Amino acid sequence: MNLNVAIVDDHPLVLEGLKSLLLQTEGIEHIYTAQTGSQLGSLLALHSIHLYIIDLDLPDIDGFELIHQIKQKSPEAKIIVSTMHEEIWIVNKLKHPDIDAVVFKSSAGKYIQKALQAVLKGKKYYCPQFQKLYKEKDKIGHTPDTLDSAPTIRELDVLKAIAKGMSTHEISECLFISENTVEWHRKNLMVKFGAKNATDLVIKALSKGYLSIPLK
């Protein structure tokens, strides 16, 4: 069976790296790449895609929302998530019937081929680190995709910067992370604190003890 595959990631080097790995896989006819959800939409207007490798951090759409849209249009499509996010609540969210495989970027070179082979056979695949984290989540009884789950250390860094009135660009430069990653953490914080806006976020973080005055 000859498949068309789309890789969606906003980092050109990652796209090229994954594409080179896929070129070694039998059964793949065409490999398309996109750095945004809108670019993927343009590809879908011209080509039929059977399998997707998707990063969760995209500049114009949340990765989970993109997966939802793909599955609504093509329920038979296969989805592999390649992500740098190993937070427990993200791990919990990734164990979803719409997602066929999960590979962390820290070990993608080692396990992406195994993920592809499993998915092409109609099986699920989770890299070893994902399996480890998921078991740990079960042991400690977290429900991290719900309201009031604890923010990660990096999210706390972003939270303090938001409280200081820093812009996304300023936070990006201060923490040495991309602006897309800053926005990802900001969105996660809004969900975890059930906040409507940045002011509401800071007030709720103060009330729960995650921030103190004066800010350090």
Rank of each mutant, 00 (worst) to 15 (best):
M1H: 08
N2L: 11
L3V: 06
N4Y: 11
V5A: 10
P12M: 09
G17R: 12
K19D: 04
S20D: 07
L22C: 12
T25D: 00
G27I: 00
I28N: 02
E29C: 11
I31N: 04
T33W: 01
Q35I: 04
G37A: 13
G41Y: 03
S42E: 13
S42R: 09
L43M: 05
A45L: 12
S48Y: 05
I49E: 01
I49W: 01
H50I: 00
Y52F: 15
L58P: 02
D60P: 07
D60I: 11
I61E: 02
E65D: 11
H68F: 12
Q69W: 04
K73V: 15
P75R: 04
P75G: 07
A77E: 02
K78T: 03
S82W: 02
T83F: 08
E86W: 00
E86H: 01
E87T: 06
N92H: 08
P97I: 15
D100Y: 12
D100C: 13
A101P: 00
A101N: 01
V103N: 00
S107T: 15
A108R: 01
G109C: 06
K110T: 12
K114V: 04
L116N: 09
Q117L: 14
V119D: 03
V119F: 02
L120K: 11
L133H: 05
K135G: 10
E136L: 13
D138R: 11
K139W: 02
G141K: 08
H142R: 06
P144K: 10
D145M: 13
R154Q: 04
R154I: 11
R154T: 15
E155V: 15
L156G: 04
L156H: 05
L159F: 03
K164E: 06
T168K: 00
T168V: 01
T168P: 00
H169F: 11
I171W: 07
S172C: 14
E173G: 15
L175M: 12
I177V: 15
E179P: 06
E179N: 13
E183Q: 14
W184P: 01
W184C: 07
H185E: 08
R186D: 05
N188W: 06
V191E: 07
V191H: 07
K192P: 00
F193D: 06
N197K: 10
A198E: 12
D200A: 14
D200S: 15
D200N: 13
V202D: 02
V202L: 07
K208W: 06
Y210S: 06
L211Y: 05
L211E: 09
S212H: 12
P214M: 12
K216E: 13
